[in-house]
Design a protein around this nucleic acid. Structure first.
Lengths: 242, 242
DNA sequence: CGAGTATTTGACGTATGTCAATCGGAGTGG
DNA sequence: CCACTCCGATTGACATACGTCAAATACTCG
């Protein structure tokens, strides 16, 4: 079911220097001879599918760095409506937006592995290594740009445009995060995609079908998309994204 | 027409110590004896209604701090569709999301006055005063939380809920920014509100009328709302915000 | 192989967008 | 001071894209 499994646990718990996300995560701010400081406060953690890592409103005790798998960030309304504000890929950092409390929930999609840093120690490490803080600030700015792009997607695009946009940006991000970009894995469910794009699952499904019928994508199975015509997809998305 | 004019140019260009936004803007990070460093690199600027301050894609040359009036941040699609990603109030900072280029356009709504800081000098000042950098990072995190709340609003709320939510949060923010919170000034047009909430102006207008008919608000004129029943508005919004 | 769940497809209703007309206030000129 | 114009806001009539409800299909996992 989960197309990522198999790669997830390739490595038991190697040293930071050999880590899959060494070059793209927070830790890339530190040189080989400095990484020990981070490693010393770090603990590993594994999540099972749909396991909740943090819940909206929880006090912020730890920061996390995703090393394998995908997380969904979401906000919920009292009546059960849900908005997924983003998907975290390996190398992404959890806790960018928050001061003392988590403003979103974070749940595993499929199996997940992450590094966990106590907030206190991480904060003092950021004082010790300013470039660590700078890198995180840079991540926060990028997350803000992404959130604003999402506002455009949610507010002004049609369902078909939304889906095209979603597939293109996920593909691009996947490549940046060293995951396959073209036969593209979609570990999340249709419900997740709907809650991300502000649609119903039926509309998401119909949009997939439409893109498939137009020959722009192939769907070997619901969790794998092949982007057959990136140019045409970009035309459908009606927006050239980064 | 513009409910803000009259207060806008109260002060010609006083010293930072006496500034209206001294306690809430970036500059609050610095003590009285340090503020000179910021003042030295600062220049004042005034914008006329609808004047464009920066355009999407422009190289980032300067940061700005709004001292009077309101700015709209927006992203545009090639075909003219527009998404307003936020409104900046006095004390807010422009440039939080950006690295080398502006990711949104910024235009004045009514008359605007702002402080302008050359990016280069501002960056070196942030090195000199880490608490300045910390404050900006804090602003960025807050902006990210707000952008994610907006994703929820855009993706999952009905038009009536969107408008109620908009009025409540604008009222709260106005108070935080030392503006009137209850007869609430709406300097932006219905088109701006529509482009912020992902609606058409007709739907915005109908939603205003509905809230008025339900006795939740009064509209002495289109740019002034009185929140008659905050509790009921919160119930309509279906979301307790912050 | 069978049960349970996720996805897809279909039929239908409605909320919201579209198009068009009216209203109202601000600014201008007679 | 009043009439006229202009532009933004409101209201109305109508259409349709998307949501809702329901059934069928396909996949996953035991």
């Amino acid at each position: 079911m989960n197309t990522l499994s198999g790669t997830v646990f390739r490595k038991a718990c190697g040293a930071c220097v050999d880590c899959d996300v060494r070059t793209m995560a927070v830790c890339a701010a530190l040189e080989e001879n400095e990484i020990g400081a981070l490693e010393r406060i770090m603990t590993s953690r594994i999540l099972k599918p749909d396991e909740m890592l943090v819940s909206e409103g929880d006090p912020l005790k730890r920061f996390y760095c995703l090393t394998a798998g995908v997380l969904r960030l979401s906000i919920a309304l009292p009546d059960g409506r849900r908005q997924i504000t983003g998907f975290l890929l390996p190398g992404d950092y959890l806790g960018l937006a928050d001061d003392d409390f988590h403003s979103s929930s974070a749940e595993a999609i499929g199996d997940v592995r992450l590094c966990s840093f106590p907030a206190r120690e991480m904060n003092s490490l950021m004082e010790q290594y300013p470039k660590l803080k700078d890198r995180l600030h840079g991540f926060t700015r990028a997350a803000l740009r992404q959130a604003r792009d999402n506002q455009m997607i949610l507010g002004r695009l049609s369902p078909l445009e939304k889906l095209a946009c979603f597939l293109l940006t996920l593909s691009t991000r996947s490549v940046e995060h060293k995951l396959a970009g073209n036969p593209l894995a979609l570990p999340m469910s249709r419900t997740d995609i709907a809650d991300y794009l502000g649609l119903t699952i039926e509309t998401v499904s119909r949009s997939f079908t439409k893109l498939r019928n137009q020959g722009l994508i192939a769907l070997p199975d619901p969790h794998l998309v092949e982007l057959l015509d990136r140019g045409a997809l970009e035309a459908v998305a009606g927006i050239d994204l980064h």
